[in-house]
Design a protein around this nucleic acid. Structure first.
Lengths: 260, 260
DNA sequence: CATGATTAAATTGCATACAAAATAGGGCCC
DNA sequence: GGGCCCTATTTTGTATGCAATTTAATCATG
């Protein structure tokens, strides 16, 4: 009787080790295009179709291929993603709670529209989040973290001088994300990520003027300096105003190029 | 040719009006228990089974009936909620992106565990969000808004003196939510709501000592005063420290009563 | 009696089938 | 010609079926 109990408990461990070797195969499936961060499932885990669909859909929306306001036709998406409706539907539910799509009961889902109001709201919120992140980062960031951000900063400068806008954006994004990660608050990072998806979506429409661009780079220089000095008062303030300027840029773009 | 085009456009409007009367029946289905706010679907829209399931599940988790760490067995949940697996699965996906459950590929989902770390993270984040809300509320809140909060505050005081903890909590929650809503930033409100679900879950375990409780009430008094004076510097600071104290309480409870 | 492989049951993931609702089009009346 | 009702098609929402994977139980073995 007693042995049976112990057995089952130990068997669990044994099986875990046994199944471990099976996991290896899962890595193969992971070799697909993984340009964007997963966000939902860690890398070594077996890939589910629904997760794949989720990422594809999210990218389509963020990159504007599925424009704001368009209806997500399940049948069409199934054909496009070569799968059945179930994973697509589950992915849509997921996106809905991220706020990228809006659910209309019995009438499917549409890609959330980008309005001046929502952009303003998101940037205000992002400003607060990054300010918090900056404050925490001053306390928690390791020297290696700061060095990494510095490296990204210089890489970004290079892209700036060469006028490589897309690459610049990518570096920029990474710097901000890294900074938020330095705060050492996983919940904050997740919240930031979700919101940032929306902003990136808006960003795809914005076209920086050279003036604005130069100004943004200057701000980034100050931000880096403040982080290096671990100035936990200045850094949050800088980040907040930086976000405020970004907002102005996006709003301008939105005004000149109204959605739809 | 032209008339056909116009026709279809007008027909849409006509149909909208036509279907409007159908909507009325939907209200009946809405008469069920709607203790908590919906958050995802507005009231007048036709209720979907999946939405119903979502709310039920969320409540079960927040109220701790589905304890942290337990596995969500789809079959069991189906029986319990009298539905098939599809809506349950979709609801689980939704909850996963809210962070209330964790998806284990091929092995289902478990209710997210509450650790000291996550509690700390969430409260820090909530602190920043409420601080932002406070700042914005000072600028945006109408006199009616402030009056409403004041009313809730006095109601809360009544519950405090009578020692009615649950009712006190409810008022408390409402005050905080109302304050966040006063900021006039829907995105902020949504983010706050999602995070607050987690905190409420932790709160169900915490048992306030009288000292702590009295202290919390004092803080609320100061908060109300600051809001009344529209002190956009003091109010955020008060809210942040208030959240900090709440965190300490929850962490204490967590330490004395470790989860699972 | 503990450990490892093998088989059986349960559970998840995906695909499909059916029901209900939405949309689109055609006929009708004015 | 313009507006409304009614039917046909499409699309969504839910249930169910099947395959793959995980988990539990059984058996063999040193």
């Amino acid at each position: 009787m007693l042995s049976l109990k112990r057995y089952t408990r130990i068997a669990k461990l044994a099986r875990l080790a046994y199944y471990a070797y099976k996991m290896t195969y899962a890595m193969d499936q992971d070799s697909g295009n993984r340009a964007t961060d997963s966000g939902s499932a860690s890398a070594a885990e077996p890939r589910l179709l629904a997760a794949e669909v989720l990422e594809r859909l999210r990218d389509l929306i963020i990159q504007g291929e599925l424009a704001p306001g368009v209806k997500l036709n399940e049948r069409v998406l199934c054909e496009r993603l070569r799968t059945s409706r179930t994973p697509v539907r589950e992915a849509i539910k997921f996106l809905a709670s991220e706020g990228l799509v809006e659910l209309l009961p019995n009438r499917g889902a549409i890609v959330t529209r980008i309005t001046a109001t929502t952009v303003r709201e998101m940037f205000v919120l992002l400003g607060a989040l990054e300010a918090l992140a900056g404050e925490l980062a001053c306390a928690n960031a390791s020297e290696a973290d700061v060095a990494e951000i510095r490296a990204l900063h210089y890489q970004m400068l290079a892209h700036h001088t060469r006028g490589e806008l897309t690459l610049y954006f990518r570096c920029n994004q990474q710097i901000h994300l890294r900074l938020v990660e330095c705060a050492g608050n996983a919940t904050l990072t997740n919240t930031y990520r979700a919101l940032n998806g929306h902003v990136r979506r808006a960003r795809y429409m914005a076209n920086l003027s050279r003036d604005r661009w130069d100004h943004a780079v200057e701000e980034h220089q100050k931000i880096l300096d403040a982080l290096t000095r671990r100035d936990s008062v200045l850094l949050p303030a800088l980040l907040r105003s930086h976000l405020g300027n970004k907002m102005a840029v996006v709003l301008d773009a939105l005004a000149s190029k109204p959605v739809e």
